[in-house]
Amino acid sequence: MAKRTPPREPDALAAREVDRLVSKLLGEIKVPFGSIGTRVLTQLADLKRILSTEYADAPALPQKPLLKELAQVVEKDIKQHIPTYGSLSDLGNPQLRSHLNKLFGPRELELRAERYTSGAGLSLRGFYCRADVGDKSKFVIFVNTAHHPGAVGATLGHELGHFIYGSLVGEKAAHTAFMEGAFANHLVEEDELFADSLVALAAYSPELIKKIGDVTNLKRGSSDRLFNSIKGAYDMMGRGHGLDLTKSETSAAWRVRYLTSMAHFFKLRCALYKSAGV
């Protein structure tokens, strides 16, 4: 596996461009500065890291052959069998489970979806692990349906990515993967970025990336272009999943977190197209 240089911290000029971009994005989703508390500041730190990073240079970006194989799985084995990708009705679909188990067997998969608000609460979007279910050892995907359906779909895709990664690359010993915390941390963890790549590939076709516009490194005067690209991706995904980040019933912290995940998947998708042509 070729080594890549870890992403560098942005210089002062890039940091100012990031601040300008973040200010415009917050205005777009109507998050008032007066509502920015500790939780929102934590989410903003993750958003700034994502916006300032050149994803094509991310140290954990999967290699081209692996990305091409994943792209084929997404097109032939996921999209064709999940026509309404991300809808809640698909989570317990026995035909979907049967197809995945046939494709990746004998690694049997169990899909579970429940509304979970106690304990870790909404901070737990989902997880993937190996567990004993009845008298069988299975790979389990759990998705927290207390989130917006669009976020639930992204979580399902991410955890499914872990299952596929184990089939193509190899399972980590005693591995449990939670979808929570900072997305920027995924840039140095190949299995996490691979799982995110499945979501990015399923959400955006190469044609849509060309239409919306690629992203570039932040430099003087570039924040407007990146803002327009991210806004285009948000407008498209929002319409497709009924997600409106301007609505006040969603807390400011979660509006910023959903925006961060959207920016992450979009920038990752651009990097996949740039690095592997998928």
Rank of each mutant, 00 (worst) to 15 (best):
S98M: 09
L103A: 01
L103G: 00
I141S: 08
S98P: 10
M179I: 08
P149R: 04
L245R: 00
A120W: 08
D235S: 14
R257D: 13
D90K: 10
E189G: 05
K64E: 11
T176H: 08
A195M: 05
I36H: 09
F178H: 13
S87Y: 11
S87R: 15
I164N: 00
A271Q: 10
K138N: 14
D235P: 00
A151P: 13
F178Y: 05
G27D: 11
T216G: 11
L122N: 02
T84C: 04
L13F: 03
D224Q: 15
A58F: 12
T42A: 11
F194N: 03
I78Y: 10
F104R: 00
D191W: 04
V143H: 12
L259T: 10
A200H: 04
I209L: 07
D77M: 02
A202K: 01
N101M: 12
W254F: 03
K68W: 02
D244W: 03
I164M: 01
V73I: 14
L51F: 12
F194Y: 07
D196C: 09
A146W: 12
F194V: 02
T42I: 03
Y234R: 11
Y234M: 14
L67S: 04
G221D: 04
P206V: 11
N185L: 06
F33K: 10
T145A: 06
G242I: 04
S89K: 09
E190A: 00
S137L: 04
